[in-house]
């Protein structure tokens, strides 16, 4: 027995409400963040991730209050991402009760920000969120590129090179989302996940595409992920976290009871 693979519900937040869209469009309301967090905690979530999908500066105070409210009631690790652009943003979220912050776009525009944040607050609280999309043609060797703006803008950066760089720069964890799979319910891109996980020394969270219990298990078994993240299957009550855990356990994966 040893370290358990983590099951992480992700809550997309827009102006203080949990929402879920398919590929970042068709946003549907899924409720109050504190209520959601409390329920997931009771069901056995190993960690919670909140993503501020609008990430505008107007929304920042709403997000800080939300984190404070959740952290006062739910005593498992909390990651907060979306609009984390400078060291002051990191400090604000950690002070509000977040344990980790997710850095995405800001890392692409200024990789040194990851270094600064990790030096200041420790690698353990810096999660680099990576949105990757397959760009190789069917007859070519697999290649994925980093995208921004919800998968609309390519950066020309190779995903595997990027995660290695972020590892070197002091990231404590990689939150890897396949933009091809996000919202599709076709399962994680396990080939991408496995290649990323085997390229870095830090934990990798697989994200994007979960529709079934087998998809969650495959993220670990085929994708070699250290944690699996999903949103809509939990929000709309398709599966409970306890069901995911029992299923993963039946597949020989170590989970927290």
């Amino acid at each position: 027995m040893g370290l358990a693979k983590r099951i992480i519900p992700c809550l997309d937040v827009d102006n203080g409400r949990v929402v879920k869209g398919v590929k970042f469009v068709e946003i549907r309301d899924a409720g109050d963040p504190v209520e959601n967090a409390r329920r997931y905690n009771l069901e056995g979530a190993d960690e919670l991730t909140f993503l501020d999908i609008t990430a505008s500066s107007d929304n920042r105070d709403t997000m800080v209050h939300m984190v404070e409210a959740v952290a006062s009631e739910v005593f498992i690790p909390l990651t907060v991402g979306g609009g984390i652009r400078e060291v002051a943003d990191v400090r604000k979220m950690l002070n509000a009760g977040a344990d980790k912050v997710g850095i995405n776009t800001a890392a692409i525009f200024n990789p040194d920000f990851v270094k600064q944040a990790a030096d200041r607050f420790g690698s353990q609280c810096i999660v680099v969120a990576v949105d990757a999309k397959k760009v190789s043609l069917p007859d070519e060797q697999n290649r994925w590129e980093i995208f921004t703006h919800g998968g609309r803008k390519g950066t020309g950066i190779d995903a595997l090179e990027w995660v290695c760089k972020m590892d070197e720069y002091g990231a404590g964890e990689i939150l890897l989302t396949s933009m091809d799979r996000d919202g599709t319910k076709q399962g994680f891109d396990n080939e991408l996940t496995r290649q990323v996980s085997e390229s870095v020394k830090i934990p990798v969270i697989a994200s994007g595409g979960v529709g079934t219990l087998q998809h969650m298990a495959d993220g670990v078994l085929k994708g070699k992920a250290d944690a699996v993240l999903a949103a809509s299957i939990f929000h709309f009550g398709e599966y409970r976290i306890s069901e995911v855990k029992s299923y993963m356990k039946s597949q020989g994966i170590e989970v927290r009871d």
Partner: peptide, 21 residues
Amino acid sequence: GDPLLDENNERLKVPHMGWNQ
């Protein structure tokens, strides 16, 4: 340690992050 290995000689991630007994 880098690399840190488990009993089956599989590489383990560092940091040690998550729920352990």
